[in-house]
Simulated assay, not measured.
Amino acid sequence: MSNTRVVLYDLQGLMEAELPLSRTPYEALVTAVLAWKNPDLAPRDYEQIALQLTGHARAVAADVRRHAASLPKSDGRGALAEVILREAEGRLSAPLKGTASCVQNRARLVQALYTRLDRLTEPAPAAT
Rank of each mutant, 00 (worst) to 15 (best):
P39M: 03
I49Y: 08
E82S: 15
Q48W: 05
P72L: 12
D63R: 14
T54M: 04
G90W: 11
S22H: 04
S74E: 12
C102R: 09
R23H: 07
R77S: 00
K97Q: 11
D40I: 05
Y26C: 02
P95V: 10
N105R: 07
G98F: 00
S70I: 01
V83M: 09
Q48E: 07
L11Q: 13
L117C: 13
R108C: 06
G13S: 01
L29W: 01
V6H: 14
R86Y: 06
N3G: 09
S101V: 10
P72V: 14
E18R: 13
L11A: 15
Q52M: 11
T54R: 09
G90Y: 07
T31A: 07
A124W: 01
I84D: 05
I84K: 09
A81C: 10
D45H: 13
D10E: 07
T115D: 14
L14A: 15
L80R: 14
V30Y: 05
S70Q: 13
A81S: 03
A124I: 14
K37S: 13
R77H: 02
L113P: 07
A57R: 04
E18L: 08
L29C: 06
L113T: 06
S101Q: 11
C102Q: 13
H67C: 07
Q104K: 01
R86V: 04
D40M: 04
L41A: 02
A59K: 15
N38C: 02
T121S: 11
D40T: 11
I84L: 03
V7N: 10
L8F: 08
S22M: 06
R66E: 13
L53N: 06
D10W: 05
L21C: 00
L34S: 02
S101E: 13
A94T: 05
L120H: 07
L120W: 02
P123Q: 06
I49D: 07
A127Q: 12
R58L: 09
T54Y: 00
V83N: 11
R116K: 13
R119E: 14
T99L: 02
E18A: 12
T128I: 04
E87N: 12
N3E: 06
T31D: 07
A57Q: 04
L71H: 01
A81V: 11
H67S: 14
L41R: 00
A68T: 04
A35M: 08
R91A: 04
M15C: 06
Y46V: 10
L109K: 05
L120N: 07
A94P: 04
S74A: 13
A126Q: 13
S74I: 12
R65L: 15
L41F: 03
E82H: 14
S101Y: 05
L113I: 08
M15E: 14
V110R: 05
L113F: 11
L53P: 06
R65A: 15
A61Q: 02
A107H: 02
V33N: 00
A126T: 08
L71T: 06
A124Q: 10
R44Y: 09
K37Q: 14
A127H: 11
G98K: 02
P25G: 08
S22V: 05
A112R: 15
A69F: 09
A100H: 12
H56A: 05
E47N: 08
A68Q: 03
P39A: 02
T24S: 01
S22N: 08
A35H: 09
M1K: 01
L51N: 03
L29T: 11
S93V: 10
K73D: 12
G55T: 02
A62P: 01
I84A: 10
